[in-house]
């Protein structure tokens, strides 16, 4: 006996429709994630609490304590900008909890049987993380300016914007990797301080990396956050940024150093993104 399978539909039409679906999938999933975040305001507020408190309370207090009167604003600005090194990792990693929750509560299964690539799911979540991080960055920078931080407005700000974007891609990819590998929300939450906060102390956040012992300074130069912070500073406080870049690269060509640091973050981001997609895809099909 012969069984006739239903013939595939006309390829062109189906192919076009599939491509359209793929293009729309990531924004659709980003909107889903944002809708879920809006229903859970704590998820939006908590990640920004620490950086805001640091920028508004600790940075001025530290500046007042350790810097002379002429340098208080400079040091407060230095510290306020450093809080970006907390905001992006914390927000990205808190955002990644959503992936664990999706898996535990079942919503992930619906996404895995949707006619879209697995990478679209990662990309959709990442787009939402970038949107929220951008919003929080504007709030943080705005509040720190209101508190007295002194940023320079110039075309250099594009370095700040670019570094923020790429570093968010990196940290959200790390969040996806952790969310895929760690079985429970509890295990994931326990990993957040290690990943998000520990590098903050070695990456030139509170003091230049040249103040570290030699071996620790070498490690700091390998941390993506060190390069990101140098570019954040180069974007909004160029003179401080040039010093930070010089502390890493020891060169005199500022643009070349900025490009190199951007390349380092981009390389980390690319590796982490590829790992996130591969692990997620593998986990989605047992």
């Amino acid at each position: 006996m012969t069984v006739t399978a239903i013939p595939a539909p006309i390829l062109g039409k189906r192919g076009e429709k599939s491509r359209t679906k793929e293009v729309r999938a990531a924004p659709t999933l980003a909107m889903r994630r944002l809708a879920l975040s809006v229903r859970n305001p704590r998820a939006l507020v908590l990640p920004v609490m620490n950086p805001v408190l640091f920028a508004l309370v600790i940075a001025p207090a530290l500046a007042n304590t350790v810097a002379g009167p002429a340098q208080q604003t400079t040091y407060m600005t230095f510290l306020a900008l450093a809080t970006m090194g907390l905001l992006i990792p914390l927000n990205s990693l808190f955002f990644g909890i959503g992936v664990v929750v999706d898996r535990q509560q079942g919503a992930m299964r619906e996404l895995l049987v949707a006619p879209i690539r697995r990478s679209s799911i990662v990309l959709g979540n990442m787009m939402a993380a970038i949107a929220i991080t951008s919003l929080q960055t504007v709030v943080l920078i705005g509040l720190s300016v209101a508190r007295g931080a002194d940023y320079v407005t110039s075309t250099h700000v594009l370095w700040f914007v670019g570094a923020t974007l790429v570093y968010t891609v990196l940290m959200y990819s790390v969040a996806e990797v952790l969310a895929t590998r760690l079985p429970t929300a509890e295990a994931y939450t326990a990993a957040i301080p290690v990943v998000a906060i520990v590098p903050f102390f070695f990456a030139g956040s509170l003091f230049p990396i040249t103040a570290l012992p030699g071996w620790l300074s070498a490690i700091a130069k390998a941390l993506p956050l060190t390069h990101a912070l140098a570019l954040f500073r180069y974007g909004l406080t160029p003179s401080s940024g040039v010093r930070a870049l010089h502390n890493i690269w020891g060169m005199t060509n500022v643009t070349a150093m900025a490009v190199l640091s951007a390349a380092v973050i981009a390389a980390y981001a690319l590796l982490a993104f590829v790992a996130a997609v591969r692990l997620f895809t593998k986990a989605g099909t047992s």
Partner: peptide
């Protein structure tokens, strides 16, 4: 697999809808 998923749907044993939405 994407073609196969495009012509099918699944009602899972456990709820998969987003409860907050």
């Amino acid at each position: 697999p994407i073609g196969a998923r495009s012509v099918s749907s699944v009602v899972f044993q456990d709820a998969v809808v987003d409860r907050p939405l």
